[in-house]
Simulated assay, not measured.
Amino acid sequence: MGKVITGATMSLDGYIAGPDESGFDLLFQWYGNGDVEIPTAGSSAPPIRVSAASAALIKPEWENTGALVVGRYLYDRTGAWGGRHPMDVTTVVLTHRRPDDRPEDDENFVFVTDGIEAAVARARELAGDKNVAVNGGQMARQCLEAGLLDEVGVELVPVVLGAGKTLFGELGGTPVRFEGPTRVVEGTGVTHLRYRVAKPAGDE
C-alpha cells in the first residue's frame, strides 16, 4: 500500500497563498522557468517547464501518485480543471453535497460526503499500490489531525507574502513533529524539501 502525502509551494514566511488568494504568480514562477517539460492533463493546465533538478524529483512523484484528495472549494474554484486533474489521476472530492451536474462518479472525479477518513479510504482503493496525494489547506489539516498523513513536501520559493493561507490552516493538537528533511533538492527558484510525519511510539 502506498503512502498518504501532502505538499505545497510555500513562501519563505510560510504561506501557500497570499491575502484574498493572491501571490500565485510569484509562488509558481518555478513551474515555467526551466527546460524540462512535464505534461499535464485537463484543458485548463498547460504543461509545466521546470529545471532538470526539479523534474528529476517531481516526475517520479507524479508517476507514483494513484489518486488525489481535494476539497469542494478547490474543485469549484478551478472549474474541475477542465474535466480532469492536471496530474491525470482520479480525484476524490470531499464535499457536503455532490454537484448537481455530477450525479454519478466516473474515472475523473469521485465525490465523498462522509468525512476525511472515508475520502482517504476511497482514494487508497483507487490508488492501489501507489500514493495518495492530499491537497494543502483544510484537507491536509484534517488528514494530519486524523493521523492519516505519512509525508509532507514543501516547495520553498524566495518570496515573502506577509499574510495569507498556511499549509495546515488552523491546526489543532500542536505541536506536531516531523522527521527530516529526508530529501533536499535545489531547483531553479525553488528548494524542494521532504519530511516524514513522526508517528507516536508504537504506531510505526
Rank of each mutant, 00 (worst) to 15 (best):
T166M: 11
D35M: 08
T6I: 05
A146L: 10
D76E: 07
L148H: 05
I116N: 10
A56D: 10
G34A: 11
A8H: 07
D76W: 02
T91I: 08
V120R: 05
A163I: 01
P60C: 04
L193M: 11
M87L: 12
L161E: 12
G172A: 15
R124V: 02
S22M: 04
Y31E: 11
V134I: 04
P175T: 00
G82F: 11
E186Y: 03
F109V: 05
P19Q: 04
V110E: 09
A198F: 02
M1R: 14
A133E: 14
G173N: 10
W62N: 15
V160W: 12
Q29C: 12
D20P: 08
P103V: 02
A56F: 10
E107P: 05
V134H: 00
E170I: 00
T113Y: 12
G82I: 05
T40C: 12
G2F: 00
T174A: 11
G137Y: 05
G187I: 15
A55E: 10
P19D: 06
V89F: 07
V185H: 02
V159I: 09
D114E: 15
R196K: 13
V160K: 09
V93E: 01
G137T: 11
A163H: 02
I48Y: 05
G83E: 04
V93R: 01
L156S: 10
G79Y: 09
P39R: 07
A163S: 00
A45L: 06
C143Q: 06
L68C: 10
L167T: 03
R49D: 08
W62K: 12
V152C: 05
V112S: 10
L171K: 12
T188Q: 01
V154I: 14
L57P: 08
S51F: 09
R194L: 11
R124Q: 05
A52W: 03
F178S: 02
V185L: 09
A201V: 12
V185C: 05
P181Q: 02
V176W: 14
E37C: 09
G147R: 08
A67P: 15
